Computed example of a mutant assay.
Amino acid sequence: MSVVTQNIRANAEIFYGDEICQEKIKLRLVEMGLPNNLLPLKGIEECGYVKDTGFVWIRLKNEMKYNNEKIKKVTSYTKEITAFMEKFKIKKLTGVKSKELLMWIPLSEVSVDTPLTGKITFRTSSGLYKSYPVSAFQIEDVKKEAIGASVAKEAQVVKEV
C-alpha cells in the first residue's frame, strides 16, 4: 500500500515517465546540495515533490539493484521510494537498502557534511552509519547542460503564462 495519499498528491508537483523523472530527481538533488547520482534509478513511472514539506516519492516499474563500483556496494530499491528532502539531507527514507556482508540493511537518512568536497553519511534507524566520499555518488556528465537548459525552459514557460 502506498503512503502517497490523495491529499499529498493534491499539493505536489507530479511527473510521469523515466526521462523527465530522472531529470527532475537529479535537479532536486543538486538544488538540495546532494550528489546528482545519489539515486541512480531506471524505469521510473512517476515522481512527485511537495515543496512545502520537502516530501518526495519515486515509483519504479520494478524493484532494482544498483552496484556502485566506486564504493563496491550494492543498493536495492523497492517499487516505491519516499523521503523528506532538505538542504544537504534526506530524512525518513523508505524503500532503499544497502548490502553489508550478507545482510540487507534499510537506510533511513543520508546527509552531506561538506557539499561536493566532503563526506556523505548513510544512517539506519538503529543508529548504524557509514561515510563515503561525496565524489563516489557524483557524475560529471553532459546532462548538467541539459538540466540547466530544462530550468531555463521552465522559467521561460512560467514567464509566457
Rank of each mutant, 00 (worst) to 15 (best):
R123V: 03
K143T: 14
E109W: 07
K42H: 10
V161D: 07
I120C: 01
E19G: 04
S98G: 13
V134T: 14
C21L: 06
E31M: 00
K97P: 00
G148L: 09
A136H: 13
Q22I: 03
I139S: 12
I120T: 03
I20G: 10
S111W: 00
K73S: 06
A83M: 09
C21W: 02
Q156M: 12
K26F: 01
V151A: 03
C21M: 06
T53F: 00
E31I: 02
A152S: 10
E80P: 14
Y132P: 04
L60I: 08
A83G: 08
K79T: 15
K130V: 07
K99S: 03
Y132V: 00
E80Y: 11
I147S: 01
P106Q: 12
P35W: 03
P115I: 13
D18V: 08
V74C: 08
N36K: 09
E19K: 14
N67R: 13
T114N: 13
D18Y: 08
E86T: 14
E80Q: 09
V50A: 09
R123A: 13
E100C: 07
L128V: 09
L102D: 15
K119P: 05
K130P: 09
E13V: 12
G48E: 12
I14N: 00
T75H: 12
E45S: 14
V142S: 08
G54E: 07
S108E: 13
S98M: 15
R59N: 14
R59I: 09
K87H: 10
I44M: 04
K130I: 08
T75F: 15
I105D: 05
N7Y: 09
I105A: 02
V110P: 14
K42L: 09
E86I: 11
A10R: 12
K87G: 07
N36M: 04
K24D: 02
K153L: 11
E145Q: 13
E109Q: 15
V50P: 01
Q156G: 05
Q138G: 03
V4I: 15
V4D: 02
L27Q: 15
E23C: 12
Q138Y: 08
N62M: 05
V30R: 02
K51L: 01
I105W: 07
I58P: 05
I71Y: 00
D113Y: 04
A155V: 09
S131M: 04
M1T: 13
E31L: 00
G48H: 12
M103S: 15
G148Y: 01
I8D: 01
E109Y: 05
C47P: 07
T75R: 14
G43W: 11
N37H: 12
S135F: 03
L60C: 08
V4A: 04
K89T: 06
S108V: 12
K119D: 07
L41T: 10
I147W: 00
F84S: 05
T121V: 04
D113R: 09
V158W: 03
